[in-house]
Design a protein around this nucleic acid. Structure first.
Lengths: 197, 197
DNA sequence: ATCAATAATGAGATCTAGTATCAAATACTA
DNA sequence: TAGTATTTGATACTAGATCTCATTATTGAT
């Protein structure tokens, strides 16, 4: 499956994303038009939209998923779910080459920073539920599976928020701490409420 | 504070949202232009954008928050956090009049169904964290507060997913069950992972 | 090597969301 | 009732996104 056509398409796609991320970093997301991205990659505006349905998708597009899944699958059977997630999270980045890792970090940085993109997580409950179901041998529509998937997504959101608020805390560190904390239950679940004056 | 000007503005805003939701229901979100909404409410397109910063905001806008906050605050101090949330959730809708309740259900239906809106929850970690912090007398930037807020958001997402998959299960019922389940910890947190053939 | 079928591209035209400006209309105030 | 402040409509403009059509490039087979 490595025909010339395929290779050119893959290259064009990568070029578009690389130039887009660079331009976004240098002049901001809103300050960069699709026209400019296309010009930098030496294609027409129409071609950009053939590769990426929208301007947002050029940031959302990510081929690291496969690596993360492989790392997760490489863990020994019997590992507790949250532990396996933590380990996969920490290991994944080390599996990438330096330039790919750098580009991926820039991509995540932009996806986390730009308001238009920040709230739109590419990870849905359905997506996470499928992974949880596969890992535990259960059905994706199972109540516990869905809720577990939702909680993992919630932990992601919390980790992003925590690393945004705390400059010294990276997202990966925050996520790691969040997963560890969840093993002992939901924080403040039984906390009595108070009424302030 | 009930001058004619204020009343007219409130009426125009309500008209725009009512007509927008009706049109979205009948012809779909993407299939309805702001032009059409403005025409239905008998104002100009420019006026629409004065009341709602974007087309999405006409679905996002919600005045039920105040009711929910009041219901939550009405609960006795000392109530466990998740229990207070469940109770507030179940009670809030009963406090609304029938037509307001129907419109609110349509609004939630559209917000949950339309792809462009589905992922953009109006509830952020920061928003939820503020409420958790207020209820428990803690700091919003506290680790446990942020994580608890994230988990509650995750439970929302899971409840939406569950009610989407299961036609007989309403969102409110799913959310209620999710909050109840979380009191005993995170489902499947310690579940051993398996590898399928 | 050539040729026909297929896929990718570029060049527009068009639609719509969103922003800015200015003059007319409407509500407030004294 | 006159003057002031606010709201509105009309208009023009930018940019994202879709569509069509002619042109170019790639492929597979002769």
């Amino acid at each position: 499956m490595s025909t010339l056509r395929e290779r050119k398409k893959a290259r064009t796609r990568a070029d578009l994303q690389r130039h887009a991320l660079r331009l976004f970093r240098d002049q901001g997301y809103a300050g960069t038009t699709v026209e400019e991205i296309a010009a930098a990659a030496e294609v027409s505006r129409a071609t950009f939209f053939r590769y990426f349905p929208s301007k947002e998708d050029v940031v959302r597009y990510d081929d690291v998923d496969a690596v993360r899944d492989a790392v997760f699958a490489a863990q020994p059977a019997g590992t507790p779910l949250l532990v396996a997630l933590r380990t996969a999270l920490r290991t994944t980045f080390d599996q990438l080459g330096p330039e790919r890792r750098e580009l991926e970090e820039l991509r995540m940085e932009i996806a986390r920073t730009v308001p238009e993109l920040r709230d739109r997580s590419q990870f849905t409950v359905a997506h996470a539920a499928e992974q949880v179901a596969r890992s535990t041998g259960r059905d994706p529509s199972d109540f516990d599976v869905q809720l577990c998937a939702g909680v993992i997504l919630g932990a992601r959101l919390a980790a992003q928020s925590l690393s945004d608020r705390n400059p010294g805390l990276s997202f990966l560190e925050a996520m790691d701490a969040a997963l560890a904390r969840l093993e002992t239950g939901v924080p403040l679940a039984g906390e009595p409420i108070v009424h302030r004056a």
